[in-house]
Design a protein around this nucleic acid. Sequence first.
DNA 1: TATTAGTCAATATA
DNA 2: TATATTGACTAATA
Length: 541
Amino acid sequence: MEPPAESSARIGRTHGNTTQQRYDLQNSQMLSKNSGSGRLKKPKEEEDLSNYFDLNDSISYSPTDDFNSFDDLPENFLDTEETPQSNHFKSFSADNIRRNGNSFNNNTNYDKEPRYHRSGLTSSSKSSDLLTDLRHTDSFSQDNDLGTGFDTVSDRRNGLHQATYEIPPQGSSTYVSEINQVRGFDKEPISNVELASSMISTLEGDDSTSTIYDSYDDMPVPRHTQRIIPSRSIVAPPPKIETSEKVHEIRPPRPTYRPLKTVVTVKRDYNNSGYDDTPIRHVNEEVKTEAVQSSYDIEEDEMMIDTAELCRRIAFELKKYKIPQVLFAEKIIGRSQGTLSDLLRNPKPWDQLKTGKSTFKKMFDWVNLNQDDRLSVLGMDGNGNKVSTPRSESLLDPPSPAPNARHSGKTKKYSGEEGPAIKKPRLIFSDVQKRTLQAIFKETERPSKEMQQTIAEHLGLDPSTVSNYFMNARRRSRNTQIQLDSYTDSNDGNPITPPPETPSRRNSNKRSTSNRKKEDELGIGDTPIKTEIDEISEASM
DNA sequence: TATTAGTCAATATA
DNA sequence: TATATTGACTAATA
């Protein structure tokens, strides 16, 4: 079997990259304003304007005559859908120049990356990039094979891509039409979703709604628009939260019987701007049992851990004592760094966990050690230095491998019959592949086997890859929804109002922001955010 | 047999 | 360098 084709790529930032940046900036700005403590980093000056951007699929950009070159486009043109030529943009930017005290030119990130060549369609030009994109997109049409278009190499690490596709010779009809399309913007726009719908309709045998173009020359250039939103409103400083319970250091006796359900939690101490070091267990009043020092004596199905709070606490401890995730992951829970990161950011509620409870139980036991022990089991001292003899055996259960952990011997390798096995390289979806899959997922989270097969053929992917994509997307979409629900619940249904500014709440904020990004990627976003443009429209009605 | 849950680990990103 | 993301593997489950 051959390895999967190299990912195709485009010049310029990836969509995800830009989205991530936007949300992170927005989050950063919100936190900065909200904290009032100066502890959080203020957004960089040149990034301020970015905080006010968001996407809006409903707004299109119509070019004006002064649009002459792709040099004039923002570097993230392909990711956004409106250019500075827009009146909306002008009024908006002027407003924010006043607010931020920054000049427009310095605020935009158009020049953050090297500018692209002006001279026609060079191999590194922005227009070529767009055309390549369209060529790939065009391959949705029934006569083309998407897979054949993927001949470029991506460098996601740098956010830039090196194009290796060929440019049509000047004077050829393809070349001319490409120029016309790039500069003309004279066709109706078509969004990814429309393309996906069209594709799905086609796949389902309904041609009536499909938008298929006979040739590459007929493919319209998508209009990229951009929604501009004001920064999220910042509310009053957080109310002072009183610690309701006195902190007790509880030592065994261990319970002599097993409670039906013991609610074990970790405790916040807002007045102390963080967590109290003393472990606390809150015992369900109905059960009337003594608290326990660890969860050793309680079976998983007899206890209940507030996983979200536990994870916030763990994250806080790791930061506070500069404990690397990889160290904690391996020594305490016996999992990989990436798994820990994911668990901390997206903890599933205890009652929705199946075999994963044991991992949280280990975290819980660690967090309930006293401070010295917490560090010593990691082989660290209070200064973040390594010490030689970790005391783990007597304090915690040794981390056990995950039951479904992959072993090196079992790892599927990509190799021929003879010689040492070579690990199958990890597939990185091309931008087009990813966007297409996302768009289709937005339409249908559970495409039929046949549809997956067709999608795979169109995108030049293995059917199992397509299947994996949808399974992962469904799962991660569900997890995101769980996080959003818990966040909304804890906020009285107002997801925009920032919560009290505590370390734990900061984590919540971060996750929420991250979730917005996930929503964006997965296409499961909630209600649209009202923009300045929307407000202007409403006011004029 | 297909799907889900838990996870790894390569890779991207901060 | 540390953390976040994500395609794919494995075992459990429907």
